[in-house]
Design a protein around this nucleic acid. Structure first.
Lengths: 123, 123
DNA sequence: ACAACAAATCAACCAATGTTGAAATAAAAC
DNA sequence: GTTTTATTTCAACATTGGTTGATTTGTTGT
């Protein structure tokens, strides 16, 4: 994974509006949302939203598809998971037991992050 | 989890130097590294590194501990995992099978992200 | 063709961030 | 106690990002 991709992605996620947009679309999943609906839901002026959608799309965190006069945006779940992998790779130099007691579980799904097993948590 | 914490964290990870520092310390685990060693390893001028270490620490992605005249920095693995949980929560509105075919595996450890099971991957 | 609508671009302004060398602080070694 | 070493703070500069209203592009329905 290219470092510039990662930097662009995190840069995109460091704005409150863009973070809200991305999480909203992660929640929506494959269905996605059209630009106007996002603007209404998050109460952001369309011009400003367009600016942030462009940034997110250029960072590849979103995809766009034209639907008539609407633009449908979807979260790039694959890139999101790549980012997670990039951050956590080589964690504790391959001795994961060292950070096992600092665990926190992702809510994405059990398919992605399973519940912590009893041997991994502190009493 | 507070949104400002998340924004600060991603803002911190959107600089090439800070991203390198954080990943280096994730790799080092509980051992951590002192500031000078980080500067040498990444070939960053001490003044500049200090600026970035301060940003990462204020964002709570790093912890500092004084050791004589050295400052030892460690990655806050717990916050990193909270960020992952924040990004992925409510993924596909609780229908994770919708994004299962977009999976990518984290390298952090099997304890954190297990290998993809055969039923979760596309042929 | 034309009016109505969705969304993006433009230009202007304001605010925040990254980098560097020199100076300051603070602990260790002599 | 003076010198050396580790790190941070400061001041200056250059660069980049965010917001807004007006304008433009492109699509649908009449």
């Amino acid at each position: 994974m290219k470092k510039n991709t990662v930097i662009s992605a995190f840069e995109s996620l460091s704005s409150g509006i863009r973070l809200d947009v991305f999480r909203l679309l992660v929640k929506k999943g494959p269905e996605g949302m059209v630009a106007g609906a996002i603007a209404t839901t998050l109460d952001v002026p369309p011009t400003n939203l367009s600016f942030h959608l462009k940034a997110l799309t250029q960072a590849r965190l979103l995809t766009v598809e034209q639907e008539g006069r609407f633009q449908r945006y979807r979260a790039n779940i694959s890139l999101m998971l790549d980012l997670i992998a990039y951050l956590t790779e080589e964690c504790c130099s391959g001795h994961p037991e060292q950070c096992a007691d600092m665990r926190a579980a992702s809510k994405c799904s059990d398919a992605v992050l399973p519940p912590i097993s009893p041997t991994q948590v502190k009493p």
